[in-house]
Design a binder for these strands. Structure first.
Lengths: 134, 134
DNA sequence: GATTGACCTTCCAACCGCTGGAACGTCTAG
DNA sequence: CTAGACGTTCCAGCGGTTGGAAGGTCAATC
């Protein structure tokens, strides 16, 4: 199987596959006589793993660790769980920050008439500093 | 006032001030005879504006537009509101994505015993694909 | 007057996770 | 033989920031 096929089966673009390989995330694919990469089911499986982990917001570095644990059939599940919990906390923090931002924006948008006149509480608040720096 | 002072008063690092100026976001500060930047209250005010807008998650580009509207005392508040609403929607979308991720992670973390044994529903799900690609 | 140290300047590089493009090689079909 | 659909490598850019190097300028102190 060549890269286009692996890309199709995994949903990861050929470009990204090469990138993942170059940074050492993906186990390097074999090479045919022509220098073309040759992929097997295992590679595709890893690619799918990476794609799902990415879609859950894991950083590449963490995915490297997750893949290591995945490959190691003797890993303690504790390690995986710790990784997942840490990430969960990080995402929660980010989400809470978003929540706060949305609340402030809602207040500002509601306060602004949004007509042809220049009076604008949004700009006022951005300008005068009554919006607490988050 | 020189850059360190402007940085202190605005809470924006000197480095970032120069960067904002370089990309044309901040009105360029005047220059003294020695080539040093000279800042006045107006610059500091703009810096604070930028900082607050950034803390609300506005992209630099949007802040450029916001600053333009801020400087234009004849702007229609509608334009500001539209900008703010658009941003609010974008942040909401991001937040919802986070919410989904957190839910999936919670489920996975709860399912994983987190002990010394290798069985791990987290890896299983990342590997087998029962986690729907988000 | 020389040195010290705190400031200022510019430019270049790295971070992260991609994406696009250029320039080139290789295979297959018509 | 040529077209075009693949493959390869490498280099550059996005956004927003931070860091560092290499050098200029100022104050105070010795």
């Amino acid at each position: 199987m060549r890269i286009a096929n692996a890309a199709r089966l995994s949903g990861v673009s050929a470009k990204l596959i090469r990138y993942y390989e170059s940074i050492g995330l993906l186990s390097p694919a074999g090479r045919g006589a022509n220098g073309y990469r040759v992929f097997d089911e295992r590679n595709v499986h890893e690619l799918r793993f990476i794609k799902r982990a990415r879609s859950l917001g894991f950083a590449i570095k963490q995915i490297g660790e997750l893949l290591g644990l995945w490959r190691d059939t003797k890993r303690p599940s504790r390690k995986v769980r710790v990784l997942a919990e840490r990430h969960q906390k990080a995402v929660t923090t980010r989400m809470e920050a978003h929540r706060t931002i949305i609340d402030v924006l809602s207040r500002l948008v509601d306060a602004c008439k949004g007509d042809d006149r220049p009076d604008c509480p949004i700009l006022d608040e951005l300008g005068t500093g009554s919006t607490r720096t988050l």
